[in-house]
Design a protein around this nucleic acid. Structure first.
Lengths: 207, 207
DNA sequence: ACTCCACTCTACTGCTCGGTACAAAAAATG
DNA sequence: CATTTTTTGTACCGAGCAGTAGAGTGGAGT
């Protein structure tokens, strides 16, 4: 099994996490259905049998690769949201999102969206897994804003769920633009405008 | 040729636009790469040779199907933008977008995005065609807002291009949510918040 | 009524897909 | 050093892919 640590036998010639990151990049760039096994093994630097012995199937490989991406995504989101006010948290979230969508150490845009928004029915589980991941990120945001509401850091008439959705919409729309090659400054310009929509303002708790 | 009108011979047993719309739905639901010829011909109600005689290739079929969708999209956008003020135009655009993304006479979400954000290199032209379509819609929006700026219907410090991009980001982010099954009310809630961000307000020209 | 010709249909092509069998290779254990 | 255990590499599998050949079909023009 891939999760166990064998005591004997020929040692693996590759690092599991390293090849997962390379696989993620292929899925990200080509989408699940556009990522052929040949492209994957080529980028990962391993052959098919090694891939199948380690990950079981293309779908499992995808899920493992996406899980790594998603965990980092959530960690980044949590870090950004760790700000004293709702306004600062949202701004940090959107700024780090815009930067992440245009970072040059990985493909432009968002794995959760490029991976496969729509797919053949037999691959529906993949699209669903991605949607679940995005929903989880939105959940982190929602928790933070719900806390802000409880702390009086949001006006009483603001629905934290709707606000979290709005922020995610912004981030996802920017992801679509980034996938098409938009420049970082363009994404931040959209964030600039969005921030004016917030029912809270810079500085300590408003009401 | 499909574009000529033959005077003799067996007449075509299907309507070109009808089968194009059915093809569009398959591409929309499954993405370009997830839409197999079997799925396409099945939904279109014609066989492969008819498809190839009429459209030439899968890629050409896709472009024709997308062109129809896109033309309607642009027409709808233009209609929505035909409002006296920038605020009203933007609101109408976003409302009709949210409704279109959740209409029940076609798949949820947006063909331009679900069709194929990312793809294998050999299908890159498809993703590019979709991105070009989205850029065209953004162009229509930008023209309207540029006119608003010229008319004094937007504050002088507002960049119509950035504002158009912001509105498109909203629409595209909502499309991602819609693809994942979001309800219409959720999309409108995001629009509600976005409208507060506008550097213009309901009613005749502000400044 | 006959001819013509575009369209329709079945059956096929070469190719690539995701996935696997099997034997050679290589490190740990005795 | 021989054995064991796991990984690696080559070469392959059936299935499904996009695309096509060619016989059959049926309405329009004469």
């Amino acid at each position: 099994m891939s999760t166990e640590t064998p005591t004997a036998g020929r040692p693996r010639a590759f690092d599991e996490n390293t090849v997962l990151d390379r696989a993620a990049e292929v899925f990200w760039r080509r989408g699940y259905e556009g990522a052929s096994l040949s492209a994957l093994t080529g980028a990962m630097g391993i052959n098919r049998p090694s891939l199948y012995a380690t990950f079981g199937s293309k779908e499992e490989l995808f899920k493992r690769a996406f899980a790594r991406y998603h965990d980092r995504q959530v960690a980044t989101a949590r870090a950004a949201l760790d700000r004293p006010t709702a306004y600062a948290a949202i701004e940090a979230f959107l700024r780090s999102s815009a930067d992440g969508l245009t970072a040059d150490d990985h493909p432009p845009g968002c794995f959760s969206i490029q991976g496969g928004l729509a797919s053949a029915p037999e691959n529906a589980r993949v699209s669903e897994a991605l949607a679940t991941g995005r929903a989880a990120t939105e959940g982190v945001l929602r928790e933070r804003l719900t806390r802000a509401a409880a702390e009086g850091d949001l006006p009483d008439d603001v629905d934290p769920r709707a606000l979290a959705r709005f922020v995610m919409v912004l981030s996802e729309g920017n992801a679509v633009h980034a996938a098409a090659g938009a420049r970082r400054a363009d994404l931040h310009a959209a964030v600039d405008i969005a921030l004016r929509a917030l029912p809270t303002r810079p500085g300590p708790a408003t009401a």
